[in-house]
């Protein structure tokens, strides 16, 4: 309650929370693009999504340690994670891609734990940060600050979203991906190499997450166990936005970011992540009710 009073007494704080929420929300959206893609095309809910983000963060960290500016780590992380995603598809995911959703959730969940523990063994459990070397803008006499790296992250997320839409609409591979998403069997009959399509989709997802991870390392911190909240956030974003609409994913991401910032401020930081999960439950219940209503209407 006190926190709400502060907010009313100093409305300028809302501006800070709003801006921060929008900017970090874009990063959440970036992670969610891939989940939407994999979910839509392969009917797989990738629980290891956050772990790809974590690995991307470590790529940025080690490149930074090697003296390379971490902004260059974004493409490098994307390429490395693409290879990893591809390899994981070829070794694990292709075994579960046509199976029940439950099987693939379990498989990716296991994959997530494996990646976490491997990272813990390889990189250690220490918390790392990657300095972006960028500064902060101050507005309104220091009452509002905007970190430049967050702005870059937001613009990047927007550009990747546009590029993704273009890729899916225009490029040959994108068309094959969409065809496979609509009907894998039919696509196969028409000569689309669906295995290739799946592998590319999964690799692309990992690549986007990797790039997001490099940004996460520059904005916050990285450690082997940071994955789960990112998986939960992207799951929620995709549940809200649907699997076939990248633009909606972006907007839902922004919305989640803002909601989280305000929840963190008014309810206290300890409920910031809890709020995400609570919201997820509410949204799932609400969707169920709505679906049930639609069914009744149809029958």
């Amino acid at each position: 309650m006190d926190n709400l009073l502060i907010l009313f007494n100093a409305p300028i704080l809302s501006v800070q929370l709003l801006i921060d929420g929008l900017l970090v929300g874009a990063v959440f959206a970036l992670v969610a693009y891939g989940m939407a893609l994999v979910w839509g095309v392969m009917n797989i809910i990738n629980i290891a999504q956050g772990e790809f983000v974590m690995l991307g963060g470590y790529v940025a960290y080690y490149l930074y340690r090697a003296g390379i500016h971490p902004l260059f780590a974004i493409p490098v992380a994307a390429v490395l994670l693409f290879i990893l995603g591809w390899a994981l598809y070829r070794s694990v995911i292709y075994r579960v891609v046509d199976r029940d959703l439950f099987t693939s959730i379990l498989a990716t969940f296991g994959l997530g734990i494996l990646l976490q523990q491997l990272a813990n063994q390889l990189f250690g459990a220490d918390v790392h940060i990657v300095p972006s070397g960028l500064h902060t803008w101050t507005l309104f006499g220091g009452m509002v600050t905007i970190a430049q790296i967050k702005v870059i992250a937001c613009v990047f997320a927007l550009l990747i979203g546009i590029a993704l839409i273009w890729f899916l609409k225009r490029s040959r591979m994108g068309q094959a991906i969409r065809a496979t998403a609509q009907n894998a069997r039919a696509a196969r009959i028409m000569g689309v190499d669906t295995t290739q399509v799946y592998a590319t989709t999964f690799g692309l997802n990992a690549a986007i997450c990797g790039a997001a991870g490099a940004l996460v390392a520059m904005i916050w911190i990285i450690q082997p166990y940071l994955g789960l909240p990112f998986t939960a956030r992207s799951f929620m974003i995709v549940v809200v936005a649907g699997v076939g609409n990248i633009g909606a994913v972006f907007l839902a991401g922004l919305g989640l970011g803002v909601a989280e910032e305000f929840a963190g401020f008014t309810l206290g930081a300890q409920f910031q992540t809890a709020f995400v999960f609570a919201l997820l439950v509410v949204i799932l219940v609400w969707r169920r009710i709505r679906l049930a209503r639609q069914r009744r209407y149809l029958s």
Binding site: G142, M143, P229, G264, F265, Q272
Partner: peptide, 21 residues
Amino acid sequence: DDKLPPDLSDMTATLTKVRAL
């Protein structure tokens, strides 16, 4: 008197409060 979550990944909300008070 904020409590931080175990999977803490962002302190913006708390620090905004600190800046105001």
